[in-house]
């Protein structure tokens, strides 16, 4: 499988990373280099093998239903690049 320019553009758009047209050929070549190298995995027989999920084996631990957090409006907003009162602000979104 190798990527064409349109796919690189689509993936960059899915990832919300602006790529200038002039950078597309370089990026395409780099990504294809990496993907081509990854292709060697195809040689491994993985039929019937359970995919590993997560780094550890244990089951999910559950916490008690108690309010232990929140009430830190100031700290939540402190690093915001733009805000309006107690809201974060972004360019207007049309639904």
């Amino acid at each position: 499988m190798s990527l064409d320019t349109a796919t690189v553009r689509r993936v960059a758009s899915l990832a919300r990373i602006r790529v200038e047209d002039g950078d597309l050929p370089r990026l395409e070549a780099e990504l294809n280099g990496i993907l081509g190298w990854i292709e060697q995995l195809r040689a491994v027989d993985t039929q019937g093998i359970e995919p590993m999920a997560g780094g550890g084996a244990q089951a999910l631990r559950m916490r008690r239903d108690e309010v232990t957090d929140g009430g830190i409006q100031g700290e939540i907003l402190a690093n915001a690049p733009d805000r309006a009162g107690a809201f974060f602000a972004v360019p207007k979104v049309v639904e």
């Binding site: 990504l31 195809r42 093998i49 995919p51 590993m52």
Partner: peptide, 29 residues
């Protein structure tokens, strides 16, 4: 950026099984 793009690609529709699931199976091995 390269890694985000590779990661986005291997999880995207149609490629997830061939890349991500396959890799996690090899990880089991």
């Amino acid at each position: 950026k390269r890694r985000i793009l590779i990661g986005t690609y291997v999880l995207s529709a149609g490629y997830y099984d061939a890349y991500y699931v396959k890799a996690q199976q090899v990880r089991t091995l």
